[in-house]
């Protein structure tokens, strides 16, 4: 930052004026990107949670209908949800019709508080997980994000989402109930725009995160998603794209991760030594690669490494 003459006096004046003023609310500067045919996305940063990004590392979206918008994921905080809802209602000119929460990770559902009076749906296991762990997740996110999380509390979605086709305001959605990234992952396909909101089952140019993952189920879920006749895909994290590249990329990474961890466990590698193993160049430009790999090792390796050991016969119990 360059200091112009007189700027320090100006700053001093501003500081004086600021005394006693209410602290400014965090502004997420949400700007929807139009995907065509009334489908929209809010694209988040390809980063970890920080104070600067206010937890906005996630993609959320909405689909406009004559009966009001259908919102997919409410974001990382009450403030995000409020700003998201105000913006959508201003643009569509109607109250939001309903909200779908894709899964129970904190960047996807903490905006629920802003949707009082609006039906909020999620898969049953997602509702249970938010009810059980929401407060602990909120504490954790406060530590990482700070101010932008002020006033945020976990609100479990009030209604169960069922798999299948639903119509809202004359628009047909396919709700696809899957699992693997977590115990319950909901994908939403909007037929008119041929847009697939994949939630965190699909990452793009951003390393997949695995704190509650079951890799075999996740890979099976990707096979299901690949059969959907989408044109536009909205990943949970990373840029929106046309075509199958992001699903293939996520599958490729998960296959490699699974094989790498199994092979290391079978060789007796200790968990912290995994950080020294080479990573294929094709994943080299994924955002937050080393950090997520280290976390994935912590999530997935303990089960594999103890499986690799053998029970000893107790020879001399003195």
């Amino acid at each position: 930052m360059r200091c112009l003459p007189g700027s320090s006096a100006l700053l001093a004046l501003l500081a004086l004026l600021a005394v006693g003023a209410a602290p400014a609310q965090y502004d997420y500067r949400l700007a929807p990107q139009a995907l065509g045919n009334g489908a929209y996305v809010f694209v988040g940063a390809l980063e970890h949670f920080t104070r600067a990004n206010g937890g906005n590392i996630v993609n959320t979206g909405y689909i406009d209908t004559p009966a009001g918008a259908i919102v997919i994921d409410s974001g990382p905080s009450r403030l995000y949800g409020e700003q998201q809802r105000a913006l959508i209602e201003r643009r569509s000119g109607r109250p939001v019709a309903r909200v779908y929460i894709t899964h129970a990770h904190p960047d996807h559902f903490f905006g629920d508080q802003a949707y009082a009076g609006v039906p909020v749906y999620a898969l049953p296991a997602t509702r249970e997980a938010i009810a059980a762990n929401g407060d602990a997740l909120a504490d954790n996110l406060y530590r990482l994000v700070g101010d932008a999380m002020r006033g945020t509390q976990a609100v479990a979605p009030g209604l169960p989402a069922g798999a299948g086709r639903v119509e809202v305001g004359g628009r047909a959605l396919q709700l696809i109930a899957l699992a693997g990234h977590t115990d319950a992952d909901l994908a939403v396909f909007d037929e008119r725009s041929a847009t697939l909101y994949a939630g965190d089952l699909v990452f793009h140019r951003r390393t997949p995160s695995t704190p509650n993952a079951d890799l075999a189920r996740w890979l099976a879920a990707l096979d299901r998603l690949e059969m959907i006749p989408y044109k536009t895909l909205v990943p949970g994290h990373g840029p929106v794209l046309q075509g199958p590249e992001a699903i293939r990329e996520t599958r490729d990474y998960l296959h490699w991760l699974d094989a790498m961890l199994r092979e290391a466990a079978a060789r007796g590698v200790d968990l912290p030594e995994l950080a020294e193993l080479p990573v294929p160049a094709r994943f080299g430009d994924f955002a937050v690669l080393r950090a997520e790999l280290s976390r994935s090792a912590a999530h997935l390796y303990p089960a594999l490494e103890t499986q690799a050991l053998r029970r000893l016969a107790p020879d001399v119990r003195e």
Partner: peptide
Amino acid sequence: ASGGGCTTPS
């Protein structure tokens, strides 16, 4: 030891 990322500690 204050936790990290997309979830609570295991």
